[in-house]
Design a protein around this nucleic acid. Structure first.
Length: 589
RNA sequence: GCGCCCGUAGCUCAGUUGGAUAGAGCAUCCGCCUUCUAAGCGGAUGGUCGCGCGUUCGAAUCGCGCCGGGCGCGCCA
């Protein structure tokens, strides 16, 4: 067991001894400023406050019952009632030695694995994936990887937009103005063209709009020709999606698009009506406020002209068509029936927040019991901005296509690699450029707090200094370079004995221990940026160590071996951590 | 208008149950390659955490009110 976990358990026991009825579940220790120790707990102060106790007295009483001699030096009570823990060197060395024997890599699998559905990426059929999709795709993938690493059961689901009113226009375009040759060359571009042309015509000419609508009605009615064209559009789109996902290394367990739920929609609406959750209004069917929330917090109300008026979640339009609310309700029901998840996580743009609020509340009113069994979470994120502070666009003002963005990342990385490592053969430089370029884009997207907008900047993300993927990959490559110089690069140190003396060795070693709690924080709060920052600090601590502590030229063989172990463990955590973010490493760059 | 999010160093951003003297990178300045990748490292400069009031032993973090910015308010998704 990792030392901080041991401390937490002992702390909980000690607190129970002093306050038998206390809730000890929040008694965490956290890494802290080295001048205070390695870990600190401020939980006793909160506990004392709840119970109107003197915090220092409580700390003293708990300390009297706290036995962590095995892993810690003498514990200090500081300030208003902090507990400061300093790890014993021997405990630190033992933890590292166990990792060197492959007993762990600084995290433990969840004791109670959860089943989690992660819904992310969700591109639209017949449209090119654009830069905006990198956010949902990258964050979602990092989250699914983190959850899996921690031992949870994950079902990743790409809820593609393969149904909806746009298909009326697309079908009309396909039948009347399709350019077969263009479709063969670049199917998505041709589909996009069809949509744009017909859409413009519909705006100008109501008769064209009626034509498009009638194609949509035929599709919805199951017309054989329209179904077949629609399926073809999905097929060519999926080819495009798969190409992008292949480059990004993203995998889905299932791809159940919106159309998959069509057969269930009428039943969902009937059930909503039967249970009195939805009702008729102006020919449509919708879910209205039940009045249980104050108006400000009620997503079914909107303030207009000085009063709160109904803003229902429509589940069936007056023309009989269904809305995405209906599809999303059917989707939740299907997922619960199929996988019985503890959580369903939606990695979707923050702007859809109000929709998810309505969705989750509606589901809770519809199936209260099932809703109690599952945590529905909207993991939202902000926009990508250009240097000008406006949404990121090409110079000509178009949205940036994801494929082209990835091409440019690789090209820019290739140029840099060729400048810095001209001696490497071209195929190797190409591969390095691929890993570095794609890594840079992904990392730049994962690094900011997901809820804030961020500014897209090629030079910053591809820089080798600062908090970037290339910097982390470089740290890894430097470590691997050390091992290449060994007579037997693949050999492991037998019976490793860590000698941790230099401050840089200690700082690095202690930081390795915090990998697991970082992963847990990522999973808990759906924030991959915690892992980014952890890895950046790890790389920084390694580089300080590397500058100050010779490895291969260490004074004594024992020191050398100890440092090799530190290097190896750092490399493994860096590699594992980057992999968890969906980023590859190279042995040389 | 109403709601949501945001406002932290010149710039771009972190900031884990409210915790100790608010941190990085870039930029600027000063050092460091006869030593494992200098694509690097060390140091310096730089902050009334938008403003005010409040809660608290303790507030960038919580509450209220302003100011400034973004987004949402469609029988689209």
């Amino acid at each position: 067991m990792l030392p901080h976990k041991q401390i937490e358990l002992k702390l909980q026991t000690a607190v129970r001894g002093v306050l038998p009825d206390a809730d000890v579940s929040a008694l965490f220790v956290r890494p802290c400023d080295p001048k205070f120790g390695d870990y600190q707990s401020n939980a006793l102060m909160a506990l004392a406050k709840q119970r109107k106790l003197n915090p220092r007295q409580l700390a003293t009483d708990v300390l009297a019952r706290l036995d962590v001699n095995e892993v810690c030096e003498k514990i200090e009570i500081a300030g208003a009632g902090f507990l400061n823990f300093r790890l014993k060197n021997a405990a630190l060395a033992q933890t590292l030695a166990a990792a060197a024997r492959d007993e762990h890599i600084f995290f433990t699998k969840a004791t109670a694995p959860k089943t989690v559905v992660v819904d992310f990426s969700s591109p639209n059929v017949a449209k090119p994936m654009h830069v905006g999709h990198i956010r949902s795709t990258g964050i979602g993938d990092a989250l699914q990887r983190t959850l899996r690493l921690l031992g949870h059961r994950v079902i990743s689901d790409n809820h593609i937009g393969d149904w909806g009113t746009q298909f009326g226009k697309l079908l009309l375009g396909w039948k009347q103005i399709l350019d077969r040759a263009a479709l063969d060359r670049d199917p998505i571009a041709e589909l996009e063209r069809l949509y744009k042309v017909i859409n413009a015509e519909c705006d100008a000419n109501p008769a064209r709009l009626e034509e498009a609508k009638s194609e949509l009605v035929k599709l919805q009615a199951g017309d054989a020709e329209n179904i077949s064209v629609w399926k073809e559009m999905i097929r060519v789109s999926q080819v495009q999606f798969d190409a992008i996902y292949g480059r990004l290394g993203v995998k889905f367990d299932v791809t159940l698009g919106e159309s998959f739920y069509n057969p269930h929609l009428a039943g969902v609406v009937a059930d909503l009506l039967r249970r009195g959750v939805a009702r008729e209004s102006e020919g449509a069917l919708g879910v209205f406020s039940d009045g249980t929330l104050p108006p400000k917090e009620d997503p079914f109300l909107v303030h207009r002209d000085g009063e709160w008026v109904a803003d229902p979640a429509l589940v069936r339009k007056s023309d009989g068509g269904f809305n995405y609310m209906t599809t999303d309700l059917a989707t939740i029901e299907y997922r619960l029936k199929t996988w019985s998840p503890h959580e369903i996580v939606y990695v979707v743009d923050d702007r859809q927040g109000p929709h998810f609020k309505k969705l989750f509340l509606t589901f809770a009113r519809w199936q209260a019991q099932a809703a109690n069994q599952v945590k529905l979470v909207h993991v939202g994120f902000g926009k990508i901005m250009g240097d000008d502070g406006k949404p990121f666009k090409t110079r000509s003002g178009d949205t940036v296509k994801l494929g082209e963005l990835l091409d440019e990342a690789e090209q820019r990385a290739f140029k840099l690699v060729s400048e810095k490592s001209a001696d490497l053969p071209e195929p190797q430089r190409k591969d390095i450029a691929r890993v570095v370029g794609l890594g840079a884009v992904k990392y730049a997207d994962l690094l900011p707090n997901r809820q804030s907008d961020y500014v897209f900047n090629w030079d910053k993300m591809l820089a080798f200094s600062g908090n970037t993927a290339p910097y982390l990959q470089y740290a890894y490559a430097r470590i691997r370079s050390i091992f290449r110089k060994l007579e037997n690069p693949e050999s492991r140190i037998q019976n490793p004995e860590l000698q941790l003396a230099a401050p840089e060795e200690l700082a690095l070693a202690k930081h390795l221990l915090n990998f697991g709690l970082t992963l847990e924080a990522v999973a808990e709060e759906y924030r991959p940026n915690y892992l980014c920052n952890y890895l950046y600090e790890l790389a920084g601590k390694f580089t300080s160590f590397y500058e100050n502590c010779p490895v291969l030229k260490a004074d004594a063989a024992a020191t050398r071996d100890s440092r090799l172990v530190l290097c190896d463990l750092t490399a493994r955590v860096l590699k594992q951590g980057l992999e968890t973010l969906g980023i590859e490493v190279v042995e040389q760059m």
